[in-house]
Structure formats: C-alpha cells, structure tokens
C-alpha cells in the first residue's frame, strides 16, 4: 500500500484528509507564521457542516461572529490579507445583518485554499519538515 506521506504529495485535499498530514502541515505553517490559514479553512468547513436545527441558530450566529472577528476583521491578519475586499465586505454584511448562511464563508475558504495550493502547499512538500518525515 502507498504510505500516507506519499499520498500527501498528490493534492492538498489528500494531505488535509489525513490526521498526521494535517499535524505536520500545521507545524510547518506555524513555523512560517501562517497557521491561521489552516485553522480558518477548517473553521469554514465546520461552520458549513453545522446542522440547521433551531437550537443551533444562536450558536451559528455566535460562531459566524467569532470566525469573522478572529480571521477577517483585522486587515493585517494573514487570512484577511489573502481574502479579496469584496469577499470580506460580503461576510461583514452577513454578520452585521445576521444573514447567517451555511455557505457564507465558502468564497473566502476557496480563496484561502487557492492560496495554499499555489503557495504554502508546494513549499511544504519541499520543506525540511516534510523531507525529514519521509
């Protein structure tokens, strides 16, 4: 069978589908001071997965606000700097008007994912941390 670390090199999704892969990638990103990229990506997935039952409504609002505050509000944050202004104002609008939708972070997540695929993921595959692991 293919060892997991070889699978990680196939695509970002293969890497993010494996606990050890995530752990190693996070260690690398933290070293590069951009660990928030990965946390934000997972936060968006988790938010989308929240079930749409009534008791969850309050939780969703709170969570949407928490994601917005932590990753998007501060324009100097690593995540915020990688998201297009139009996407940020869309999310801000949703939060302010309490238009909470499971897909409200999808565009931002895609932008961060593209950035990881083009930038941090290829760097990770060439990094000492990955090469030493293999």
């Amino acid at each position: 069978p293919t060892p997991p670390y070889l699978k990680w090199a196939e695509s970002l999704h293969s890497l993010l589908d494996d606990q050890d892969g995530i752990h190693l990638f996070r260690t690398f990103l933290k070293q590069e001071e951009c660990g928030d990229l990965l946390d934000f990506w997972f936060a968006c997935s988790g938010f989308r997965k929240l079930e749409a039952n009534e008791g969850n409504e309050e939780k969703k609002v709170k969570l949407a606000k928490a994601i917005y505050k932590k990753y998007i509000l501060d324009n100097n944050g690593i995540v915020s700097r990688q998201i297009k202004p139009a996407t940020k104002s869309f999310i801000k609008d949703c939060v302010m008007k309490l238009h909470i939708d499971p897909a409200m972070f999808d565009q931002a997540q895609t932008e961060i994912q593209t950035m990881m695929e083009d930038n941090t993921y290829p760097l990770f595959l060439k990094s000492d941390i990955y090469l030493e692991y293999t």
Partner: peptide, 20 residues
C-alpha cells in the same frame, strides 16, 4: 454556553478527519 474561542476550536476540530 461556550466562549467564542471554545466554540471556534470545536468547530475546527469537527471538520477534521477522525482517523485514517
């Protein structure tokens, strides 16, 4: 009710794969 940080952390963890 959880604090915002707890909620965020749980949300992040919930999106991760459970096991290989």
């Amino acid at each position: 009710m959880d604090s915002e940080d707890d909620l965020l952390q749980k949300c992040i963890t919930s999106a991760m794969p459970k096991q290989r």
